[in-house]
Every structure is written in C-alpha cells, then in structure tokens.
Simulated scan of single mutants.
Amino acid sequence: MEETIAGPEAAHIPKQRGDSLLEAAVRYAEERHWDVFPGTWLEAVEGMHRCSCDQPSCSTPGAHPAGDDWATQATGSATAVRRMWSTRPTASILLPTGRTFDAIEVPETAGFLALARMERMELTLGPVTLAPDRRMRFFVLPGAAAKVPDLVRNLGWSPASLDLATLGEGGYVAAPPTRYGSRGAVQWACRPTPANRWLPDAEELISPLAYACGRDR
C-alpha cells in the first residue's frame, strides 16, 4: 500500500513502504542500471540518532559518503550491491551523478510549483526526489551541469540570483528510503517507472524550474 502526503500545488509524494535498503539498492541497479554505493548510516546513542561519521555538526546525518573513495565503490552490479549492503544493512543509498544522470536541485516549494507547471505543459519527467532537507532533485540526462548556467542566462536570469543548482560529475544524490537523522526519509516525488526510463534533457525542464525559483525568492 502507498501513502501519499499533500504538498504545495496539491502534489502528492508516494511514501516508501516495506522496502529494505538492500532491496531498494538492488532494484536501482537491476531495473534502472544506476550505479549505487553505500554511505554513512544512523546509530542510536542514548535515544538519539547519530551519524556513523561521529561528527556532531554533521549536516546530513546518515546520508553522505563514508569515505573519499566513494566514486570507485559505486557499482551497477546487483551482486556487488548485495555484498556491500549485507555487511552494512543500514547504510544509506547514494547515487553518483554525472554518469547515467545529472540532477537539478531546487527548494521544495519551487519544486512543487514547477511540477504543477510541468504537468500543465505535459512535459515528460524523469524521477524526482524529495529529501528531508526540503530540496527536490530532478533527474535529467548527463551533461546538464555544464549547460544549465547558460540556459538560465538565456531565460533572462542570473544563475547566482536563483536557488537552483546542478549536480554532475563528482556529485551524488540520496535515494529512497534513505533517512536523514530524525528528519525523515528521502521520498519519490516522481517515482521511477518504465515510462520515465528515458530521461529529459535539462533544456526541457529549465524554464519551469527557473520560473518557479524566481517566484520563490
């Protein structure tokens, strides 16, 4: 059963039910052919959730790379994924960007506004995550990181004036059902389905995203 929660612009977010981190990580590798790698995890200490990195000021507890060699650990092999999560079953699921996809990141309020606008425009979307840090990440074809600044300028905006970022080579996103400390879990705003296996180009989505970020300032 899927639970949905209402958000701005009457959007709905499917909540993950009954999926272990291992099962989800294997599915991403097998069904989407995404590289995945295990990140940090949460540890219960005196009734509180603490990141395995042991940094008191950790901004994304339980949801960031565990070491500098994370890029070499990322794999699309389901066998390797099972092996990694069998030894670290509570590790977060992280997906490297700049390989099979880049991601355009915007604030949650702008993301919901953009989703409603994209629906009216009948645009084809790729997967979209909503994280507890109140940021949404729109998956697009690789190469977006290099193109987005010029695309934003062509729309009449200064890239520095918008709360819009692009994650490409060297970046990563956390995938459902990864949890951020006590703040909740990453969810799909647009779930991966056979219909959105082919990702949109950044150019197709940048106008509604930039417009929404401009209104959200």
Rank of each mutant, 00 (worst) to 15 (best):
W34R: 02
G168H: 06
V152N: 05
P61I: 01
T178D: 05
P8T: 03
R179Y: 04
T193Y: 01
R17C: 07
T97R: 01
A114S: 07
M136T: 04
M136V: 10
T87W: 07
S59Y: 01
W41M: 05
S182R: 04
D69A: 14
V106G: 02
S161R: 08
E169M: 11
R32K: 13
F138M: 11
A116R: 15
R83K: 14
Y172T: 04
S182D: 13
S20G: 07
G18V: 08
F138L: 09
L209F: 14
I13K: 03
R83Q: 14
L209E: 09
V106N: 01
Y180V: 00
R217Q: 15
A189C: 09
E43G: 02
R197F: 12
V128G: 04
Q16N: 13
A11M: 12
R17G: 02
E105P: 00
R99L: 13
M121S: 11
H49D: 08
E46F: 05
E203F: 00
Q55S: 13
L155P: 01
L123Q: 11
G67Y: 05
R183L: 12
P89D: 10
G7M: 09
Q55M: 14
R179C: 06
V36G: 02
G126Q: 08
A63I: 00
Q16W: 07
T72E: 15
I93Q: 02
S52I: 10
G18A: 12
G76P: 03
R183T: 04
E23P: 03
